[in-house]
Amino acid sequence: MSAFRVTLQRSGIGLPKKTNAVLKYLGLTHRGAVRYTDITPSYATQILRVKELVKVDIVPRRLTRQEHNATLKTNSGYVVEKQTSERK
């Protein structure tokens, strides 16, 4: 169930309409945008059409938006052991 993780590194601004249409199809709306796709010939072809703009990794599976955001979280440096119910 491996998948491609595609990150837009370079903007498509000023490039041909077709190139920007490919970016739109892949759901890469702005620099740094990340999209997980299945590994299929059709997705592979679209990724290769914008090969100068993206970074591609092979990951074990497609992550949901929430799962992906969780991977971006940094270590807060503390652990909450117990929360008291009475505040104020």
Binding site: S2, F4, I39, T40, P41, S42, A44, T45, I47, L48, R49, K51, V56, D57, I58
Partner: peptide, 15 residues
């Protein structure tokens, strides 16, 4: 990377 991914599935693409 794209080549490696498709190869692992036994597929390829024209482009």
């Amino acid at each position: 990377t794209v080549d490696e991914g498709l190869k692992s599935k036994g597929m390829t693409s024209k482009l």
